[in-house]
Simulated scan of single mutants.
Amino acid sequence: MRISARTQYALGAMLALAEAGHPVHAERIAVTQEIPRRFCDNILLQLRRAGLIESQRGPEGGYWLARPPGEIALADVIRVTEGAEPAARPFPRAAAPLTEIWARLRSHEDALLSEITLADVITSNGAVRP
């Protein structure tokens, strides 16, 4: 699996919101997560449109998670930023068994990333449960 910079930034922004537990301004997210400001704004808009975060304008506003961190899996964020990965084209002849292996690999990846929530990451101190 290849993870784009957009996805890395989105995960960082989501974890910052999960850790904060209150509305956070985009500027603060951009600075603390070292995300270029315009890129951060675009990512936050994408996450809001997907229903993962909510926002409010003004001095008391900002961005916050739409659901508790324990209900948002890493896979939820990755699907928003990366989209659904297309199925691999079938391998020909002697390599044909690789088609099934790649499908199983993607299935395992998705299962693992669907099990790990934002809450798991912020409480793990680097040791995510198996």
Rank of each mutant, 00 (worst) to 15 (best):
N42P: 00
P36C: 05
R38E: 12
R37D: 09
P68H: 14
E34L: 12
R49Q: 15
W64F: 10
P68V: 11
A30Y: 03
R57L: 11
Y63V: 01
Y63T: 06
L44P: 02
P59W: 05
R37G: 08
D76L: 04
R37E: 15
L52W: 00
F39T: 12
I78K: 03
V24F: 00
R57D: 07
R48K: 14
P23M: 09
L47K: 03
S55G: 14
R67D: 08
N42S: 14
E27W: 03
L44F: 04
L45A: 15
L52I: 00
R49P: 06
E54N: 10
S55E: 09
G21K: 10
S55I: 03
Y63R: 03
N42C: 10
P59N: 11
Q33N: 14
A75I: 02
L74N: 06
D41T: 10
G70K: 12
Q46K: 14
C40Y: 00
G21E: 11
A84M: 09
G62L: 05
R79P: 01
E82A: 12
Y63L: 04
E71I: 02
L52T: 01
I53Q: 02
R57N: 08
L47Q: 01
G83E: 11
S55C: 09
V31G: 07
Q46A: 15
R79K: 12
A30N: 07
G51T: 08
I43E: 01
E34G: 11
N42H: 09
E71T: 05
R28P: 02
A75E: 14
E60F: 09
E27Y: 08
E85Y: 10
E71S: 15
I72Q: 06
P23D: 07
I43K: 03
R79Q: 13
R49I: 08
A75M: 12
I72D: 06
I78E: 04
G83H: 08
A84K: 10
E85N: 12
P68S: 15
P23F: 02
L74S: 04
A66E: 07
P23R: 05
C40A: 14
A30R: 01
P69T: 06
E71P: 05
T32K: 11
I35M: 04
R37A: 11
A50K: 06
E82W: 08
L74Y: 10
R49Y: 12
E85H: 14
P59G: 13
H22L: 14
E54S: 12
H25S: 10
P59K: 11
I29N: 06
R37M: 13
P36F: 04
R28H: 09
L65V: 05
R57M: 08
